[in-house]
Amino acid sequence: MVDGKSQSLFKDKPIKVLLAKPGIDGHDRGMFVLAKAFRDAGMDVLYAGLLPTPEEVIDTAVNEDVDVIALSLLNGAHLVVFRKVADLMKKKGIDDIAIVGGGTIPDSDKPKLEKIGITGNYGPGTPLKTIIDHITERAAEARSRKLGIA
């Protein structure tokens, strides 16, 4: 699932992902499933705990030097809340951390999220492999920028 180029990117340090639910939302079953699946796929996984603010999510991501922030919401507030995270990242000039999303996101909202750099946006029932491949792809972009080889 990781191609040759990615393999060398992550040889010394595996993909590091921060899972976060940045809104007022306690639906965390999917997060825990993903945490285990990412770990089984060899990634380094952090969970931001419940109810972090967008500021806290970004602070953790920067301090922990993650490649990807994976946001999840199942309360219908993804457009507002995911955007807050993306805007804050932009404001802080951070471009070497990718953001992906997931949860109950209607198809019609996906282009809006992609426009602000939040990709994936998978719903329940998505195969784990699809998500892992997507994270790997986004992590490769982020890591390349970090290493200045993009």
Binding site: N75, A77, L79, V81
Partner: peptide
């Protein structure tokens, strides 16, 4: 809705986008 369930008023900044949603 979520703000009510967590004891926040609708005018709290955290409630932004969540009022009346769930």
């Amino acid at each position: 809705d979520m703000p009510t369930l967590y004891g926040y008023d609708c005018i709290n900044e955290r409630a932004e986008g969540e009022v009346g949603k769930c």
